[in-house]
């Protein structure tokens, strides 16, 4: 359980077990227990980050686990635009040209893929999971691809 996602997955499995048990309300109690602790540790992290200042917080992000915990609590020193742009740069060698069109107030992240290497569903989900990893606050990730080029042929004549 070395990532917040793995811990979250385990927590959800255990809560589901309670919900299927004799009293489904125990699942809500468990939910509240987890909320209590996550918020306590989140508040602790917030104070640590505040003390360290932006530079110190950026250094903390060298550790992937710490970085993902800062993301859980909205404490990452870089904003979503910067985080997503960097993630797209890392993806380029695998998926080709990618641009961040914008992040809506509705939490939808809009991207444009040049589509030079196609944009199948596997590639889409690769892009989406990369964006979600660095921007868990994203509600949805939309990848725009250009329409296929029309083949213009001249009529003989």
């Amino acid at each position: 359980m070395t990532t917040p996602d793995a811990a979250a997955a385990r927590v959800e499995v255990l809560i589901e077990q309670l919900r299927a048990g004799p009293d489904p309300r125990s699942a809500l109690v468990a939910d509240e227990l987890v909320r209590c602790l996550v918020q306590l540790y989140g508040e602790g992290l917030r104070r640590v980050v505040e003390r360290l200042g932006p530079e110190g917080a950026t250094a903390l992000c060298d550790d992937p686990l710490v970085e993902s915990l800062l993301l859980v609590h909205d404490l990452h020193p870089a904003g979503p635009r910067e985080r997503i742009t960097r993630a797209l740069e890392r993806l380029r060698p695998r998926v080709g040209e990618l641009d961040l069109l914008g992040i809506g107030d509705d939490g939808v992240v809009r991207l444009r893929a040049a589509g030079s290497r196609g944009c199948g569903s596997a590639q889409r989900s690769l892009i989406e999971s990369a964006v979600r990893r660095v921007a868990p606050e994203a509600v949805r990730v939309e990848v725009e691809t250009p329409p296929p080029l029309l083949q213009v042929t001249r009529r003989p004549g």
């Binding site: 917040p4 996602d5 811990a7 979250a8 997955a9 927590v11 939910d31 987890v34 909320r35 996550v38 918020q39 989140g42 859980v72 609590h73 909205d74 939490g107 979600r132 868990p136 606050e137 994203a138 509600v139």
Partner: peptide
């Protein structure tokens, strides 16, 4: 804003 994983417990 909420989100996946543990984030749902932060709100």
């Amino acid at each position: 804003m909420s989100g996946p994983g543990l984030r749902r417990f932060t709100v």
